[in-house]
Design a protein around this nucleic acid. Structure first.
Lengths: 188, 188
DNA sequence: GTCTATACCTGGATAGAC
DNA sequence: GTCTATCCAGGTATAGAC
């Protein structure tokens, strides 16, 4: 049941990429911290970029799955969006590296062929929730992009602040107020 | 009245940094595009990082000045914050490089000793406007960080989307709706 | 599959002429 | 102050033994 080498490499890369950034992390750094050889790294991955790509794909897949679970568990946009924000906050506290890498890093700079994050699956799903909410009359009729950014923009910004160390308190302490503001902005 | 060499170097650096990112831009790239020699660059700046630092300082100073102008021109949080968002949108359209560099780039990665952007002067001033609005009873009593991110978070997120090419329309077309949502979230 | 050694090159920075 | 030539470190990636 021990994690295989590929997994170890990815975990280490995530740790370093999110902490120092992609460009400040050399393959040697990964090799050293992961206690594997350079040879092994290049056995599992074509090059450094491929590590970043694999990481991005896995994490955004996990996050998309979480969004789908939320959509299945709840039926109203109100409940869905609130749980999304709660999920983002919890993840930021429990797994800051993941959040840093997935919703703070500038992927364009090291994954040139990648679609921008905002167009990735999890964000598409979040927007989808908002659009459905508008169709159901729960959310006011405004431009979908405005609605989505109004609901989630404040929360995302709070996660950025938290990841930057600009907030002392645990994000969960802001959840109720943050959600209240978010929903007031677009709820009927 | 021709711009001096230092200015040319900074302009070119801004162009390249915002387009490709700091790490994907070599000093040679700057030299080439600016039509100056490497020697000149190192005459005006200690090293590559110093270029980025000077750029950051100048731009955030300009932006802070704009915030102060807005605070002097208007007296209510409502009018001030609306104009801030209008300013962010206009700047993003007219000077995308500046906005990209100042509120999208990850300065921590190439300016390790820099305070996070969110703690820089212009953002402090934006928060200040919100806090004053709360004291004056214009804005509901919530945590200042929540209030600030609720008001500006959606707009900032829209600028990110726009800079990523994820929005087809000019930001000004979203201004009214965006502001309406922002103000509903925290206005009394 | 895993390792070490090393090739190769980009890119930051300096030296020193003009 | 401006330029060219050059140095050199560090980092990606490969070769090839085990």
């Amino acid at each position: 049941m021990k994690p295989d080498k590929r997994e170890i490499i990815l975990d280490t890369a995530l740790d370093l990429f999110s902490q120092r950034g992609y460009f400040n992390t050399s393959v040697h750094d990964i090799q050293k911290q992961a206690n594997v050889s350079i040879g092994s790294i290049y056995h599992y991955f074509k090059n450094k970029e491929a590590i970043a790509k694999a990481l991005f794909d896995e994490l955004s897949h996990t996050m998309a799955k979480a969004m789908i679970d939320i959509m299945e568990k709840h039926t109203t946009a109100h409940d869905r969006c609130r749980e999304v924000i709660s999920y983002l906050f919890t993840m930021t506290e429990e797994n800051p590296q993941v959040m840093h890498y997935i919703l703070y890093a500038k992927h364009k700079e090291f994954l040139p062929d990648q679609k921008p994050v905002c167009s990735s699956r999890p964000f598409e799903l979040m927007k989808e929730m908002v659009i459905q909410g508008m169709e159901d009359g729960e959310i006011r009729q405004v431009d979908p992009n405005v609605a989505a950014t109004s609901i989630f923009g404040g929360a995302i910004r709070l996660t950025h602040l938290r990841l930057d160390g600009a907030l002392e308190k645990h994000l969960s302490e802001y959840l109720d107020e943050c959600w209240q503001c978010a929903w007031r902005s677009v709820g009927q």
